[in-house]
């Protein structure tokens, strides 16, 4: 509830209370939802032969400077070498909160710091030739049927309005706290959404384009316009 308190000593009353109609419910209800995609994933899919993937990013201003975020993506890798390959395939999501430090920017540009929790379910496998005396040319296969993994991310980035409903943005992320499950036969090498697992502390970058869908008009505080 927005409340303006104003002292008017010349009037008969000590105080006049103005209130507009922004309710608590309105404050917790976003003014719009931004839906975007990661251009780097698309570019990496096009220009490399070991990665195919895409990612959808959504955020909404749920309360003042706080934005709820959701990322959902697909990640497929296929690393080949002379006598074998490793492949992983799965979907992942991240949920979290961004804190916007440009709260009063009229174009809803953002500089934010945030936190994400990531989760993935995937499959992975490797086939290779084992050559170690006295064994030679053994065709080896190892796979994980339904492994899962969780991790955390600290994020920071920008959202810049470029035209009407279009924003571009970049998000940098530091991934940490990786925990994998169901990797009994094969230690996963490249986990969807996280990346290579031998690094506990992994950097990620998205370059995104967003389309903003307005949901409601943001109500501004009343302007009193009193004579000086």
């Amino acid at each position: 509830m927005f409340i303006a308190l104003l002292s008017l000593p010349s009037s008969g009353q000590d105080r006049i209370i103005f209130s507009d109609s922004i309710s608590k419910k309105d404050k917790l209800f976003p003014t719009g939802i931004r839906v975007g995609t990661d251009l780097l994933s698309i570019g990496k899919s096009y220009y490399t032969d070991y990665f195919k993937g895409w990612e959808i990013n959504v955020d909404a201003d749920v309360y003042r400077r706080y934005y709820a975020t959701l990322d959902y993506g697909s990640w497929t890798t296929n690393y080949k070498w002379d006598n074998g390959f490793y492949a992983s395939d799965g979907r992942y999501f991240r949920v979290g909160v961004d804190v916007n430090f440009l709260l009063r920017d009229p174009d809803r540009n953002m500089f934010f710091i945030g936190f994400r929790r990531g989760h993935t379910s995937y499959t992975d496998r490797t086939d290779y030739i084992f050559n170690e005396p006295p064994f030679s040319n053994l065709a080896m296969h190892a796979e994980n049927v339904s492994p899962k993994a969780n991790w955390n991310e600290l994020t920071s980035g920008l959202r810049i309005k470029v035209w009407k409903f279009i924003w571009i943005g970049a998000t940098g992320r530091i991934k940490f706290g990786y925990k994998g499950k169901g990797q009994d036969d094969l230690v996963s090498y490249d986990v969807p959404g996280y990346g290579r697992t031998f690094k506990n502390g992994w950097f990620g970058l998205n370059y995104q384009v967003f389309f903003r869908i307005p949901i409601r008009e943001e109500k501004k505080p009343l302007s009193l316009g009193l004579p000086e």
Partner: peptide, 15 residues
């Protein structure tokens, strides 16, 4: 118990 790891795309897998 056998466990396979991928050392790197250059080195391949090892058990």
């Amino acid at each position: 118990t056998n466990q396979t790891i991928v050392l790197s795309p250059d080195c391949g897998s090892a058990i």
